[in-house]
Amino acid sequence: MAENNNNVQLSKTTQGLINDVSHFFPGDVEVQFIGNLKSGYVRHDQAQVVQDGDRLYVQINDLTEPDFTATHELLHLLMTLRGFPQIYFPLTSGDKQLDEQLMYMGTELYDDVCHFVVYSEQRKHGLVDERIEKEYVKGVRQTITPESGKVDDEMPLRLVTILDAMIFLGDHFDQFADVFQRSFPISLKAAKELYAMLTEKPVDSPFALRRDVVKLYRDFDKQMKKWGLPPLQLNDFVMMTAVFSKRQLGLQVKQVFNLYHSELKETKTGKRAYVGFTKSDDQNSFVTSGPAGKQASEDYFKELYSKTVKELYQDLRIPYLLR
């Protein structure tokens, strides 16, 4: 249902998606409109999802395209509720500002991959037309400044934003290519390379989503290094839901994971963290801190390594997905 003080009429498609989310979520799902702003462009920060007990609120703070904005958030929610991998931030560098930057970029790149599913569904439902494409490109111009001809600190944001534009516009990108070529030639060249990598295989399953996010984090860092900018190391910083086969769940931890003592600390405990990287893709898949003291620590990890993967995830209370 929609809570509506702005006389905004949501389409049947949007109402249908609210019902789809309600089917998977045990409580109430509402779309709320906050304020009367109409900026004339569309951007992802025009809505947020807030959970209050057994209620989910999709709050929209820009009424330029309420159906597009609402369905965008609802489709992200649907992916979460239907068991696509999620990202978590259990680690801290000790530098709040750096943590926030890493969390922002980690989320934006993760969302870029999710958008292969989200934008495709929105187009399928007739929620993207020429007007919305123009408003989206206008939103890009509101998010990033034109390049000055050389690499600067805004390059990571430009790259993630233009990559998303390529995913959103798809076959229609050529109609706007001159806008990007004129203002963002360096970022556009890099975005094309990342886009080519991401479109080699479709994002058609939870496993495929995880595979592409892991690759995108890694290839994004390669681009940062080419530009002489510091890599983000999101494969280490971001924990992502692991996807196992039934066979893997029965294997010992040491057969599936490499465990490293990280320079980062566990946010919850403030202790130095141990990070479990899946051997198959070298992605952070669980975080633990273990006990203090050399002997206690050694015993703890000996025991941990001999557990099955299923036992470990049950003990740590970390969700995982089955292939």
Rank of each mutant, 00 (worst) to 15 (best):
N6E: 12
L10D: 07
S11I: 13
S22Y: 00
S22R: 15
L37G: 02
V42C: 04
H44Y: 12
G53K: 10
Y57V: 05
V58F: 00
E65N: 08
T69K: 00
A70S: 15
H76R: 09
P90Q: 10
S93E: 10
D99T: 05
E100C: 01
F116P: 02
Q122R: 06
Q122N: 04
K124C: 01
H125K: 14
V128S: 05
Y136Q: 03
R141Q: 11
E147I: 09
D152H: 06
T161S: 12
F168Q: 04
G170H: 11
A177E: 15
K189H: 14
A190L: 07
A191C: 04
E193N: 13
M197F: 13
T199K: 10
E200Y: 01
V203P: 06
V203I: 15
L209A: 05
R211I: 07
D212Q: 14
L216Y: 03
M224L: 10
W227F: 14
W227N: 07
G228L: 07
L229F: 02
R247G: 02
L259Y: 06
H261D: 11
K265V: 12
T269L: 04
T269I: 04
T269R: 02
V275A: 03
T278G: 11
V287K: 03
T288C: 11
T288A: 04
E298G: 03
K302G: 12
S306W: 02
K307H: 04
Y313A: 10
I318G: 02
R323K: 11
